[in-house]
Simulated scan of single mutants.
Amino acid sequence: MGRLDGKIAFISGTGTGIGRAAARIFAAEGALVFGCDIDEDRAAETVELVEKTGGTARSGTSSTSRTSVRARPGPT
């Protein structure tokens, strides 16, 4: 049993670097990993790496383009 059995981890930036490493470590400890990255193909590679070692992961894409992020006015 892993330290994270039965837990769900939401991790951003799973396509490379620290995000990919975190996804692999969390999954190895038993967590169900939901990851996202702006590079859909790289995020999918991470899912494959996790699943090859017996973990469970899913991925999606994220976007923070200027058209998708809108500032809300503060109180007046």
Rank of each mutant, 00 (worst) to 15 (best):
F10K: 01
A27M: 05
I38T: 12
G17N: 12
A23V: 07
E48Q: 15
A43H: 04
D39N: 15
S63M: 00
I11C: 11
R24P: 01
T76N: 13
G74W: 03
G60E: 03
T67Y: 03
A71W: 01
F10Y: 15
E48C: 00
I25G: 04
C36E: 09
F26R: 04
R3N: 01
A57W: 04
A27R: 02
G17Y: 12
A44L: 13
G19E: 12
G54V: 02
A23W: 02
E29I: 07
R42V: 05
A57D: 03
E48D: 07
A43T: 00
M1H: 11
V50Q: 00
V33S: 05
R20I: 10
M1L: 03
R20A: 11
K7C: 05
E45A: 11
I18H: 14
S62Y: 00
S65Y: 04
S68C: 00
T56L: 01
R20T: 02
T76V: 11
L4Q: 04
A28Q: 15
A71L: 07
R20M: 06
F10R: 07
G74F: 11
G60D: 01
A31W: 06
V69L: 14
D41A: 15
P73W: 07
E48V: 09
A43Y: 10
A23L: 06
A9V: 00
I18Q: 15
G55H: 03
G13K: 14
T67R: 10
R70D: 06
A21M: 09
L4I: 09
D41S: 08
A27K: 03
T76I: 04
A23P: 09
T46S: 07
E40M: 11
E40G: 07
L32Y: 11
R20F: 03
D39K: 12
F34C: 07
A9C: 12
G2T: 08
E40V: 12
R24K: 15
T16L: 05
F34V: 13
L32H: 13
R3V: 06
R3S: 01
S63G: 06
G30L: 08
G19V: 02
T53Y: 09
R66C: 06
S59N: 13
I25C: 05
G6Y: 09
F34R: 10
V69E: 01
D37F: 03
P75F: 13
T14S: 12
I8R: 10
E51W: 05
S63A: 08
R66M: 07
R66Q: 10
R20S: 10
T14Q: 08
P75L: 14
A21F: 09
G74T: 13
G54Y: 08
V50W: 12
A71T: 01
P73K: 07
R72V: 14
S68R: 08
R58W: 13
K7P: 08
S63H: 01
G6M: 07
K7N: 09
T76K: 14
G60H: 03
T53E: 15
S12L: 11
G17M: 02
T64K: 03
R42Q: 14
G74A: 14
G2I: 01
D37A: 06
R3T: 07
L32G: 00
R42C: 03
